[in-house]
Design a protein around this nucleic acid. Structure first.
Lengths: 113, 113
DNA sequence: ATGATAGTTAGTGATATGGCTAAGCATGAT
DNA sequence: ATCATGCTTAGCCATATCACTAACTATCAT
């Protein structure tokens, strides 16, 4: 449980909901206002707001209010910690596979002699 | 909400817990038995079992029982859908940035004339 | 066959999540 | 000034999550 791990949970949690992922995909296309994001979901506004707060608290989106309209935008960099974690995991088990490979090679060489 | 999206939720959910991520990291190093995985967590066995089922149901680990010992192993391919989804998101907003770039270029050219 | 070991099952409780309605509060338009 | 628009807050409910204890089962060792 490394230090950078701390904020990984809210990130993954935010991504664990299909509605929120759909919102992110929509926002990847272009920024949008709350009502606009609510429409395709069929959910009521308060529910949508909740999802948006989860996304915002995870840092995946940023919002700002102009008049009575709140505009939401994706924060692409926010995905990086997730990518990094995945890469780290891969690095670990790839290193392990390499060790295994090396071991097999040793066995084969021993057999040769 | 595409078709392949269906199993992304359990995946992300499984990854949203620090204990489970720690277990995955441990398993990335090498397979391990249940007790071995429980130890560093300080959690009771039933709790650990729960976490393991979540991981297994998400397809992130595979387990098998030999005698009274259950051995858990990571399933590296299981991470792929997550990576793919992240890549898709990135592709979408990068395409958008490109369009924006192109637009800015148009503006600049118009100014030249 | 006794007992220790390694999981497993069942059941409890506190808290979090995801949905809702109802009511409130600022704009923006007329 | 009035009314519609676009959130926002508060509060409710069902279900899910994460932790626990207690009791059970199935090996393995002696």
């Amino acid at each position: 449980m490394a230090k950078h791990d701390i904020d990984l949970s809210p990130l993954f949690h935010a991504l664990a909901d299909p509605t929120r992922r759909a919102m992110l995909t929509r926002l990847a296309e272009a920024p949008a206002r709350v009502t606009e994001l609510a429409e395709p979901t069929g959910l009521k506004l308060p529910t949508v707001m909740r999802h948006l707060s989860v996304l915002e608290e995870a840092g995946l989106i940023a919002t700002s209010k102009d008049g009575r309209v709140r505009t939401c935008a994706i924060v692409p960099e926010a995905f990086q910690p997730v990518r990094s974690w995945l890469d780290e995991q891969r690095a670990i088990w790839e290193a392990r596979l390499d060790r295994l490979d090396a071991y097999v090679m040793t066995l084969m060489k021993e057999r040769e002699t």
